[in-house]
């Protein structure tokens, strides 16, 4: 119960932080940015404590000991929100753009609010013993690496959105305050590429780890399960983006649309496929 309350408080902080990100985008002054980071830091801290409590409860089952509790939909969404926020803070800390919060943090909020919504349902935050198939050290690596990749790619999606907004602003004859807040199109385009260049290898390595796990658990590296297939489609879509950018020199809107298609595949792989997949259907509650 304490875990849920802490997580709800963290979600509230993320929501306020996101709101402040929008305020910073549209108004002059630096205070919005500072407060956004303060709220995010408090939210992340509460979130970490909540996640720590969940791990403690999860480990009360001897079979679950030393595994991360990302086997349930609530656990996975909560971890996703934390990963998204952490990657955002890293990107923002490195590039000091300030405005990314309005474009990236909504995704962290979607994940956190989704987890809160899931928690309200029957058995939402309940913890159970892991099925034998998930009792493997890969359980700590494979999902975590993939979710880290998803978080980086979500940040790239946010940067792509910012690029589209900036392009619209630049083209319009009366650009708003936002136009001066947003970095140049070239800078955003480059950041979008850099994030995908970081996220794509992590994504593919996560998929490979899944293959190695599948080989030790089921005897095959690849089985064309819906989740596996969609992760391949996601990887191919980002590979197409990278080829278009590096070989055909695509820049700007066209490249962003391609990367956005990749992110749509990420969302479908993370959420939608759980209702198609028999082997990876843990998130759907099966």
């Amino acid at each position: 119960m304490i875990e849920l309350r802490l997580f709800q408080a963290a979600t509230a902080c993320y929501l306020v932080g996101t709101g402040l990100g929008f305020v910073y985008l549209c108004r002059r002054g630096e205070s919005g940015r500072r407060w956004m980071f303060n709220f995010l830091a408090i939210g992340a801290l509460l979130h970490l404590v909540a996640f720590g409590l969940r791990i403690q409860a999860f480990w009360s089952y001897p079979e679950n000991r030393f595994y991360i509790p990302v086997n349930s939909f609530f656990g996975a969404l909560s971890f996703m929100a934390l990963a998204l926020t952490s990657v955002f803070v890293l990107v923002e800390g490195r590039h000091q753009l300030g405005i990314l919060g309005a474009f990236v943090l909504p995704w962290a909020c979607v994940a956190a609010v989704g987890a809160v919504g899931r928690a309200q349902g029957v058995g939402g935050t309940e913890i159970h013993g892991l099925p034998p198939a998930l009792q493997s050290y890969w359980m700590n690596v494979h999902p975590a690496v993939l979710m880290a990749a998803y978080a980086v790619l979500a940040n790239a999606f946010g940067v792509g959105l910012a690029l589209l907004v900036q392009e619209r602003q630049v083209r319009s004859h009366r650009p708003s305050e936002m136009c001066y807040r947003l970095p140049s199109i070239e800078e955003l385009d480059n950041l979008n590429y850099r994030l995908i260049a970081v996220g794509f290898p992590v994504l593919t390595v996560g998929i490979i780890m899944g293959g190695v796990w599948a080989h030790s658990a089921w005897g095959r590296f690849w089985g064309w399960d819906a989740k596996e297939t969609w992760s391949l489609i996601t990887a191919l879509s980002y590979a197409a983006f990278l080829h278009m950018r590096l070989v055909a020199n695509w820049r700007g809107r066209k490249a962003v649309y391609t990367s956005m298609f990749g992110f749509a595949c990420v969302v479908f792989t993370f959420i939608g496929v759980n209702f198609l997949s028999g082997l990876h259907g843990y998130l759907s509650g099966r």
Binding site: Y61, E63, H128, G129, L130, P131, P132
Partner: peptide, 9 residues
């Protein structure tokens, strides 16, 4: 598992 009856091993 004693609580859910699901197999643990």
């Amino acid at each position: 598992y004693a609580d859910t009856g699901a197999p643990s091993l």
